[in-house]
Design a protein around this nucleic acid. Structure first.
Lengths: 134, 134
DNA sequence: TGCATAGTTGCACTATAGCGCAACTATTAT
DNA sequence: ATAATAGTTGCGCTATAGTGCAACTATGCA
C-alpha cells in the first residue's frame, strides 16, 4: 500500500498529540469517515490546524483521505495489524475530562446534517467560518 | 499507584522515540527486569542517555524502578489495561532493520553474567565504561 | 465568468525534546 | 577513610513540533 517504510516511532509520534488523539478517537470509535468541516464542528478547532494534523496522520500510515468534489473524506486504515492493535489502545484510554465524549456528541449531531450519507454543508460553527469580505 | 493523572498523549509521547521503543521492546519481549548497565551493554547506548529515557518512561507510568544496592532494576508495569494493549502493539511492530533482534541477542548474552538472577558486574563494553582517572 | 467556500500550506514565532559533556550522589569493597 | 563504580542530572546547544495568520488552490454554483 505505502511504498515508504514508516519507522515505528513515527507511528507513536502521530498519536503523541492531544488533537490528533481526539481525531483518531472519534474515527475509531465511530468507524465513520469524516470530512474536515465535520471535524471542525466536532472538535471545535480551526480547519488549518486539523488539516495539518490529518496530514501527519496520513504520513504516519494511519489515515487515508479521499477527495470527493469539494470535500475530502478521511478514515482510519485497518492495516497492518499493529495499527488495529493501536486502536484497541485508543478505545481503552480513560476519558477523565470527558473530551472524547463531548467530541462524539457533537459529531453525532453533525452527522444528522448529512444527506445520503454525504456532507453537503460547510462549517456550521460561526467562530470557525471564513468571514465573508464585507 | 501513581497519584498524578497522566494525559493520554503523554503515554504515546513516551513511545515516540526509537531508543525508548528499543528499551520497551526488550523488556516486554523478555518479561525481564534489567539494570542500567545491562541495558547499556544490550542497546550499546551511553548510560546517561538511557537513564534519562528510563526516567521519561517512569513518568509516563510505563515503568517501575527499584533500587537494590548499587543497582537499579527496571521493569514494565502491567496496569492499567491500555498499557498491556500497548505492549501488544509493541510486540506486533515490524523489525525491518533487525535492531530489536540484535538488542535481544546481546541482552540474552548479558544475562548469562548474572549470579543468582542478579547483576553483579558493571558495564562490560569498553566504549561505555567510565574511564579511570589514570 | 465570477463568487463563495472546502481545504491546504508558506512563514515567522515559540516551546520543547534529545543530545554530549561533565559534575554530581550513593553504595560497596579494600 | 578512600577509591571505584552504578546511576543521575544540570547546562548549553541544536533540531524540530505545534501554532496563528494570511495567502493560496480547487471545486461548484449563480
Amino acid at each position: 500500500m505505502h511504498l515508504t517504510r514508516i519507522p515505528s516511532d513515527t507511528v507513536f509520534q502521530a498519536l503523541a498529540d492531544e488533537t490528533r488523539l481526539r481525531i483518531i478517537h472519534l474515527l475509531v470509535e465511530t468507524g465513520e469517515e469524516s470530512c474536515l468541516c465535520e471535524l471542525v464542528d466536532s472538535l471545535l478547532e480551526p480547519s488549518y490546524k486539523l488539516s495539518r494534523h490529518l496530514k501527519i496522520l496520513r504520513q504516519a500510515g494511519l489515515l487515508t483521505s479521499q477527495k470527493e468534489g469539494r470535500w475530502v473524506y478521511h478514515r482510519m486504515l485497518e492495516e497492518p495489524s499493529y495499527i488495529t492493535r493501536l486502536y484497541d489502545v485508543v478505545r481503552a484510554l480513560p476519558d477523565a475530562d470527558g473530551v472524547y465524549a463531548a467530541d462524539l456528541t457533537r459529531f453525532h449531531e453533525r452527522l444528522c446534517l448529512r444527506d445520503g450519507g454525504r456532507c453537503l454543508v460547510g462549517i456550521q460553527r460561526e467562530e470557525f467560518r471564513a468571514e465573508a469580505v464585507d
